[in-house]
């Protein structure tokens, strides 16, 4: 059985980023979704949150996304992200993002099952939400 698979991150108007990965964790529409090598073909929606890729070298890479799609087929996962923020880009986003999130939390309360209703969020709010999750993930 294969122990690794290819993860390709794509975003509009930017170059593709590819990794050879052991495991992938992404924000699925029903919560966090883990993907391992040899998985059955999958087509899923991604919601705003953090994408975590465990590379074959055991190095973990984190990205924030505001949503998109994931297609896993023939041991290759393609993540089509609406936007993608790396940990390096995180610092530049800081102050404004935090402030926006506070406004977001006040404006869009969690639904009955404690999941946030992303359909009512603007792109800027989704971005601020995803950045906060990435910040938490980086701090561990």
């Amino acid at each position: 059985m294969k122990k690794s698979f290819t993860v390709t991150l794509a975003r509009p108007g930017r170059h593709l980023i590819s990794f050879e990965a052991k495991a992938l964790q992404l924000p699925g529409d029903r919560g966090s979704l883990g993907v391992l090598a040899g998985r059955q073909p999958l087509l899923t929606v991604m919601e705003p949150g953090v994408i975590s890729i465990l590379e074959i070298t055991d190095h973990r890479r984190l990205f924030a996304t505001t949503g998109g799609f994931c297609e896993m087929i023939d041991n290759e996962a393609t993540l089509l992200c609406d936007s993608l923020i790396t940990v390096e880009e995180l610092e530049a986003e800081d102050a404004a993002g935090e402030k926006q999130l506070q406004q977001t939390q006040a404006a869009t309360p969690a639904t009955k099952n404690y999941r946030r209703d992303f359909t009512k969020m603007s792109e800027a709010e989704k971005r601020a939400y995803a950045l906060t999750l990435l910040r938490k993930a980086v701090r561990g």
């Binding site: 029903r30 059955q40 073909p41 999958l42 087509l43 929606v45």
Partner: peptide, 15 residues
């Protein structure tokens, strides 16, 4: 292939 669709294909297409 036999795909796992999450959510259903109709909802997936809506997005």
């Amino acid at each position: 292939h036999t795909f796992d669709f999450l959510p259903s294909p109709a909802l997936l297409f809506d997005q």
